[in-house]
Design a protein around this nucleic acid. Structure first.
Lengths: 168, 168
DNA sequence: CTAGTTGCAAATGTTTTGCACAAAC
DNA sequence: GTTTGTGCAAAACATTTGCAACTAG
């Protein structure tokens, strides 16, 4: 009924992950060509790191990772490339309840998020019933639905175990 | 099954609204006394305007309105009072997909929001089935749910009518 | 009196932008 | 050779904070 995946839980650094990352890079280059935009070293470095991480990264985290392989890159290029990847439909931007945005690789299916308020861990889930219900509400409100955002906040199993004595 | 209310649609500026706003002010003063905090002119002005507006206001909008009745008040006091009202459980802070936060008076029942991407109008709705389903997902994920955020984005009926020829 | 409150200006943190230089097509 | 992309520093934006002056209890 519902698929559940923890952050980066699928293909943990394995060959499948690399293959997928390479596919994304190919797609990225194709999109650039379509738009007559240029393929450059900083752009490729940022995109490659982003696809390889494939978690919910912040610009800051991505910047730090990119610096390791290309210390020359500036923050502005990080943000510009993130926006470009978004325009290319390869990235989606999320604003959870923190100051900074988080970015994730666009996958095959839509999903929503659970965010642990203690450790920040992000779990993804999918539920067709909820999707259906949202469409019902849209009909009832007489509006056209473009997109939605469902975020659950709470405490993950690990943190609940750790906090056990103090909180329960 | 589900209650639906447009922004400020209930008690449009009528006596019921004023009565409710006064009740909130009384509650606010009670909460201040409990905490041994002071009741001051700027605080009261901000709270009164906030309760009277009772929409999804931004700090900027609230500041502008408060300035009209007390031009002396600064931005810092707006933010400090918003935080205070939140701590008192009289206000809830929302971060829709804009840069700035929006604040609303805490009412009797929990509700979620639809936001029109064209005109910015905000509709509120309530749906017990969705609430139930979220609890199911939390159980499935093995997490403890503290709160959630469900936002639908799209085009309201009015904007759809206006855009009719161009878009549909 | 004394702790809490205010307004201002300056600081903050994240993201964007102007611009001169550099690199791709 | 153009056009596009880059890095840097500065700007922008919403929000927070330090501080000296003020005021409610």
């Amino acid at each position: 009924m519902a698929r559940i995946a923890a952050d980066g839980e699928t293909d943990v650094g394995g060959p499948a992950k690399n293959r997928r990352a390479e596919q994304r890079m190919a797609l990225f280059h194709a999109r650039l060509r379509e738009r007559a935009l240029k393929s450059t070293a900083p752009r490729d470095d940022i995109a490659r790191v982003f696809f390889a991480l494939s978690r919910h990264v912040s610009a800051e985290e991505l910047y730090a990772e990119v610096k390791r392989i290309n210390p020359h890159v500036g923050y502005a290029t990080i943000y510009r490339t993130l926006k470009l990847l978004k325009d290319c439909g390869l990235l989606s931007e999320r604003h959870f309840d923190e100051g900074q945005a988080r970015y994730e690789v666009v996958g095959e299916h839509h999903h929503d998020h659970f965010i642990c308020e203690d450790c920040g861990r992000i779990l993804e889930f999918e539920d067709e019933a909820i999707e259906r219900m949202q469409r019902n509400i849209a009909r009832r409100l007489g509006v056209t639905l473009h997109r939605h955002k469902l975020e659950l906040y709470g405490r993950c199993a690990d943190c609940a175990a750790k906090a056990g004595d103090q909180d329960l």
